[in-house]
Design a protein around this nucleic acid. Structure first.
Lengths: 104, 104
DNA sequence: GCGGACGCTACAGAAAATGTAGTAACGGAG
DNA sequence: CTCCGTTACTACATTTTCTGTAGCGTCCGC
């Protein structure tokens, strides 16, 4: 038993995944790592969250094998993390369209 | 200024979107509405969150024009919401693969 | 006019996030 | 060998958010 499933008791993969991704800052961290590895502080400054929460989210993402820490370069996406990111890339374009529709 | 951009001051569409989707239960609610409309209580029971938070997330999703309330059938995805969901559908399959890779 | 389903709200207590400060390990300069 | 900077990370009091439970007001069928 690897994961704590917060939002769902079912343990169905999609629920576990949605639970993980639905935590504050998780999507943002993955997004921030999309191009290149980042140092802890660098990441923290970029997203503007407290070190406490950045650290615990990184721990969760590392446990989920989506992110890893390389001593040379910093935090970076694993192969699995890059796969996930690839699924999210279309969001970038779509978000532009969405914002226009919502007219913020 | 319509939206509170919690996680980012930039107002860049992708950041606003990631902020919205990164709130607790939001992804789960969108997922729960993927097939058919749901009533408030039905939705609440399905995800197991408090009515308070279900209501406020639904309000946010309605403001974001991703969800709407139809008196006849209940809460459902808008056209925009269905577009977003379509981007997320591959997650379902991917999550199965991911769980196998993580649960060593 | 009673009962049930509906969306939704109030509110106290619990949990999570913030903001600030600080620790411990390492590596290089003097 | 000290000092300094950089690294990841932790402690903790304060603030914000979420939960759990109860209940409100409206509509509709009986």
């Amino acid at each position: 038993m690897v994961k704590r499933v917060r939002g769902s008791k079912t343990g169905r993969p999609i629920m576990v995944l949605l639970d993980l991704l639905g935590r504050r800052w998780v999507l943002r961290i993955v997004w921030e790592l999309r191009e290149e590895p980042r140092r802890f502080r660098e990441l923290q400054d970029a997203i503007g969250a407290s070190p406490t929460i950045v650290n615990s989210r990184l721990a969760e993402l590392r446990e989920a094998k989506l992110v890893e820490l390389d001593a040379e370069s910093g935090y970076r996406l694993t192969a699995l993390g890059r796969e996930l990111l690839r699924l999210f890339l279309p969001l970038h374009l779509w978000s532009e369209k969405w914002v226009k529709a919502v007219a913020l």
